[in-house]
Amino acid sequence: MREIDLFPLWLSLQVAAVSTLFVVLSGVALAWLLARKNFFGREALDALVTLPLVLPPTVLGYYLLVLLGRNGPAGRLFEALTGGQLVFTLRGAVIAASVGALPLMLKTARAAIASVDAQFEDAARTLGKSEWQIFRRVTLPLASRGILAGAMLAFARSLGDFGATLMVAGNIPGRTQTASIAIYDAVQAGRDSQALALVALLSLVAFTLLYATNRLVSASLK
C-alpha cells in the first residue's frame, strides 16, 4: 500500500476556517441589514447573494474566473495592490468557498435576527443605547444560536466545495488541491486507499462538527 497523503485535508480545513471567518463577518452584517432595514432593492440583494446556492458550481466558478482572473476587474485590482494573483492560488480557493457558503450563513442569520422581537431593541433604545451597542448586546446574543448554526453550515459547505474551487484554484497538488479535489483525483488515478482515507476523514470531521454544534446549541438553550 502506497503512502496516504493527508495534506489535502489539512488544506481544506485551512480554507474552510478562513472562509468561515469571512462568511460570518459579512453574512451577519448583511443579515442584519436585510432583516432590520427597509431599503430599495433589499430582496434583489438577498437573491443575488443567495444565487450561488442554486447555480451549478461550474457556472459559479466561471463567473469567479472571469471576475478574479488576471484580466478581470477584481484580479487586476488585486494584482495592482499586492502584485499577487487570485486565480490558481489558495486565496482563490478561499474566495470560491466563501461565495458558495455565504448564502447558507445569510439565510440562517437573517431568519435568526428577524425572529428577535424588535421590542427588545426598542427597549434598549429607550435605555439610551446606541445602535451598535444594541446590536452587540441585544440582537446578536438573542440571535446567536441561529448565527452559530449558520457558521457551522458555512464551514461544512466550505470544507466540501468542489466545482467552483476546481475552476478558480485549479488542481495543483500541494498548493490548491483540497480534499474533495484530491478524492476525485485519487479515484481517477485508481488510488483507492487514498480516496477512502480522505472520504472517511472528511466524513468524520463533518460529523464531529455537526454533533459538537448540536450539543452547543442545546446547551445554550438551557
Binding site: D117, F120, D122, A123, A124, R125, T126, L142
Partner: peptide
Amino acid sequence: TPVNRRRVGYVFQNLALFPH
C-alpha cells in the same frame, strides 16, 4: 431627538426584559 437621547423611562406592557 433620537430615542436613545430622550432620557425617557419606558416600561413596556410585556416588560421586554432581556431574556439573555
